[in-house]
Computed example of a mutant assay.
Amino acid sequence: MARRTKIYEGKAKTLYEGPEPDTLVQYFKDDATAFNAEKKAVIDGKGVLNNRLSEYFMVGLEQIGVPTHFLKRLNMREQLIRRVEIIPLEVIVRNFAAGSFSKRMGIEEGTPMPRPIVEFSYKDDSLGDPLVPEEYVIAFGWASQQELDDIVALALRVNDFLSGVMYGVGIKLVDFKIELGRVYDGDFMRLVVADEISPDSCRLWDIETGRKLDKDVFRQDLGDLADAYTEVATRLGVMPSNVTHPSGKPTLIN
């Protein structure tokens, strides 16, 4: 790691200069944060799980024609990704009321949305990633109207894919957030799904019991976060079903 040039360090990942032009190495850390980093902890094995789970989802999206920044997994904690121009928005898709949405709208958690709702928040930790309307996005030049339309279409395709995959293993996709970036090929530009897709960025509830299998476990002190993420990975076939998580060192299938 010391030989690499660090490009960016976030709360859960670090980006390094890649081995080839227009590539980066994305390193998944074990750090867990909540409430805009007011609550912090180190969860052994979390980065390993998120690396493998994000790979699983990104590969699945590519297979159905949704472009992503993912190129390949390098090892247990690192991915090779395309360098993209990140759009400074978190794109949130809600299938059921939960979290801040329930508080903001006075709707009981778990209430189904009449249709998937797409929201945008401006990526700025110092401001708490505030929700912004489409008018702000266009007025401040974060994205054009055409890009915004494409972003919504991509987000809904991701939602269809993730909802189906999760439902197949007995998990309800309550909501999730993604980031998108621009990739240029001469004069041609396309949008790709970037950052990560993992239990860090999704709300996942067991369909039968309602048990939470996402970062709310950490936010709300509901148990061991790595156990929850391991459960998701096991159901998806990323980990063998006979593996437990006693030591914080998960064993993953290559």
Rank of each mutant, 00 (worst) to 15 (best):
D31T: 10
S198E: 00
D150C: 06
V192F: 02
F176I: 05
I64R: 00
I117Q: 11
R94H: 11
K249R: 07
I86S: 13
D22P: 02
Y184H: 13
I43K: 09
P114Q: 11
V84G: 06
E20H: 12
A97H: 10
Q220N: 14
L180C: 10
L15V: 09
A155N: 13
N159G: 03
Y167S: 12
F28Y: 01
G110N: 01
D129V: 09
L191A: 06
L61F: 09
V217H: 14
P250S: 07
P19T: 09
V42C: 04
D185A: 14
V91I: 15
V137R: 01
Y122D: 13
A233L: 05
R3M: 13
I171C: 05
R157D: 08
K29G: 06
S201L: 11
S102C: 07
T251R: 11
A12D: 08
G106Y: 04
G164N: 10
V169T: 00
Y167L: 08
D150Q: 14
M113Q: 00
Q220P: 00
G141C: 10
G164Q: 08
V193L: 02
I138A: 08
D227F: 13
V137A: 06
M113W: 02
I197T: 02
V48L: 09
D150H: 10
Q26N: 12
G237Q: 02
E134Y: 01
P67R: 11
K172L: 12
A2V: 04
F101I: 10
E147L: 06
V25S: 01
L213F: 07
M1R: 15
L49V: 03
R3T: 15
